[in-house]
Amino acid sequence: MHVRPRLLALTAAASAMVLLTSSPAFAAVIRNGEASQGLGVFEGVECPAPGSLVTSEQTDGHARVFRYTKAVGMDRCESRGIKTGGSAYTFRNNSTYWIGWEQNFSVVPGSGSDFVPFQWKSYPNSQQNYPVLMTVGNGMVQLKYVGPGEVWHTIWTREVKAFEWHRVALGIHTSDSASGGWIELYYDGIQRTFSNGSTRYTGRTWDSDNRPKWGAYDRGNTATEIINRVDRLMIGTSYADVG
């Protein structure tokens, strides 16, 4: 059977198109951490009894969420890192990560007290224990940059009330040089301006081996039970992945 050259060319093009469209698309989303998947999305849990980390059904428009309960007398109830493919995910230096989640607090401490619902934690820390973290207290939610030598900078502040849901999308470009890293923040879908007058804050954002932590860490006053509900947890390489 004789096949004309033009027909051969069309057949080859069609075959190439089938291969192209059937290949898996590149996904920039590193982890979809919806609570419906259970606690296995996390690398570890640090939540001593009688505190607890569970998934919980909600009746306020959020289906199933992670509920961190820091008990009275305890200083923390947190999750540590994430897993992908059943193994702990390794974050790396000189890389860009976007971390998104929604949070809802049972209490917003008044004057003289606060707690930490999120840390970009160093393991082990050598110069920076937590280069980036969030605090809740004095009626405010604040984003902090903590430079080498435990030098704290409040880079963003906003009023917050108990039992409000708010969406956080935090961009971190990792670098162990003094000016190589950066932080960006979207809060409730709006890019926020930092204390330096810019939407990007520059600093050292990588210490040794950094991982995200969510929950409630009470930095001194352990007399209050704190519940932090976390929903729609996402990690990717761009804001579009997590916003």
Rank of each mutant, 00 (worst) to 15 (best):
R4V: 08
L8H: 03
A12P: 06
A12E: 05
A13R: 07
A14C: 07
A16H: 04
A16P: 09
M17N: 09
L19V: 01
T21H: 06
T21D: 06
P24C: 09
A27W: 14
I30D: 11
N32A: 13
Q37G: 02
G40H: 12
V41R: 04
G44Q: 12
E46Y: 15
C47G: 06
C47R: 03
A49H: 09
T55A: 00
V65S: 00
V65H: 05
R67V: 13
R67I: 05
G73R: 02
D75H: 05
D75Y: 11
C77H: 07
S79F: 10
R80F: 08
T84H: 03
G86R: 13
R92Q: 12
N93S: 04
Y97L: 01
W98M: 06
G100D: 12
E102Y: 01
G112R: 05
G112V: 04
S113V: 07
D114F: 14
F115W: 10
P117A: 02
W120F: 00
K121H: 14
S122K: 02
P124A: 03
N129E: 09
P131C: 13
P131I: 09
P131E: 15
T135R: 07
V136W: 04
G137C: 02
M140W: 04
V141S: 09
V141G: 13
Q142I: 00
Q142P: 01
L143P: 02
K144V: 13
E150Y: 14
V151N: 15
W156G: 03
T157N: 10
K161Q: 14
F163T: 03
H166V: 03
R167G: 01
L170G: 03
D176P: 11
D176F: 10
G181F: 11
W182M: 02
I183M: 02
L185W: 04
Y187S: 04
I190C: 12
R192P: 09
S195C: 01
S195P: 12
S195F: 03
N196P: 01
S198L: 07
S198I: 05
T199F: 05
G203A: 11
D207E: 06
S208W: 13
S208D: 15
N210M: 01
P212R: 02
P212A: 01
I227Q: 09
R232I: 07
R232W: 07
I235N: 02
I235S: 00
I235Y: 06
Y239M: 12
V242A: 05
